[in-house]
């Protein structure tokens, strides 16, 4: 394979890894927007919070000799780390909704947005003050091996990230389309008041949404820690903006759109880093946003069925 193709293949692998993280985070923005028509500015902090809970869980559990004694035990350690971080962050999401957003549900639309910014600032500063103002190393407890496929190399870490991301997405997708709770989420996002008339407990659906989004964001945060090797109190900011952009590119409110948008932005960003300049990497998301919105104002998979009035 030529060197040129090798670079493309390599950037493709990197882009999918990065895109998976954006996509997971983008799902949280799109879920909340779909149900409440609100942009949850505090969502980027779920990424950060999840990474910290993941780090502390990993550190704590790895002191127990059993978990590092064998391959399967190590796998269990990672599964537990993800579960605990995702559940803890999900609970944080529910608590935030309950106390910072629900009281403002009938207020003008700007009020919950401002409240969300407040929550975001609070969480960042809490991490800065109580944990550390510097970045903390995120250990990797397994041996990272690298495989060569064609001209590209892919690490076992990347495989782990990509596979877990895809599994989480498939689970979410079938949850929403197949289960009763998923149906009640869809109904609530299409018409909240009418969903109540069907017998759906709206507050429960909203709480559920605020659990799932942050839980997925936490997984993305841990991936980021593992991939880059460290975490910091403001680590959610840039990925948060890009993931939000990804959600809009895909058509905000649309789950598959958020996934598509995340992968698209991750891929283009990696390719741009190789072919244009790494300096431009961070503006790619917005260039994509502008181009997509010019041709498809509702996003790539935005609502195609107009509501009849």
């Amino acid at each position: 394979m030529s060197a040129e193709l090798g670079i493309i293949a390599q950037q493709f692998v990197n882009g999918i890894t990065l895109g998976g993280m954006y996509a997971l985070l983008a799902l949280g923005y799109t879920l909340v927007y779909g149900i409440l028509l609100m942009i949850n500015f505090a969502h980027a902090e779920m990424f950060m919070f999840g990474a910290y809970v993941g780090l502390f869980t990993l550190q704590g559990l790895s002191r127990i000799a059993f978990f590092t004694s064998s391959g399967p035990a190590l796998l269990l350690l990672y599964v537990l780390t993800f579960l605990i971080a995702m559940i803890a962050t999900g609970i944080l999401g529910v608590v935030i909704e309950r106390f910072a957003y629900r009281p403002l549900r009938h207020a003008p639309r700007l009020a919950p947005l401002i409240s969300a910014i407040g929550v975001s600032l609070f969480l960042q500063n809490a991490a800065l003050l109580w944990i550390s103002s510097r970045s903390l190393p995120f250990p990797v407890l397994f041996e990272v091996r690298t495989f060569r496929i064609g001209g590209a190399s892919i690490s076992s870490m990347q495989i782990l990230i990509i596979v877990t991301t895809i599994v989480l997405m498939l689970v979410l997708d079938s949850f929403v389309s197949r289960t009763r709770l998923g149906k009640s989420m869809r109904a609530t996002s299409q018409d909240r008041d009418t969903a109540g008339l069907m017998g759906i407990d709206i507050n429960r659906v909203i709480a559920l949404t605020f659990f799932i989004g942050p839980a997925l964001g936490a997984a993305a945060g841990i991936f980021s820690g593992m991939y880059y090797g460290n975490i910091k109190y403001n680590m959610g900011f840039i990925p948060g903006i890009k993931a939000f952009t990804a959600a809009v590119v895909g058509g905000i409110g649309n789950l598959r759109g958020a996934m598509l948008g995340g992968f698209l932005i991750g891929l283009l960003e990696s390719l741009a880093a190789a072919y244009i300049s790494t300096g431009y990497k961070d503006v790619i998301a917005f260039v994509v946003l502008i181009i997509v919105l010019i041709f498809k104002p509702g996003g790539l998979l935005g609502e195609s069925v107009a509501e009849k009035v």
Binding site: R180, R186, A187, T194, M198, I200
Partner: peptide, 18 residues
């Protein structure tokens, strides 16, 4: 106030949600 993104069948099933 039907659910615009759901099929007619799904809309009817929503009526029987409980």
């Amino acid at each position: 106030r039907i659910f615009p993104q759901m099929s007619v069948r799904e809309n009817l099933e929503m009526g029987a949600f409980l």
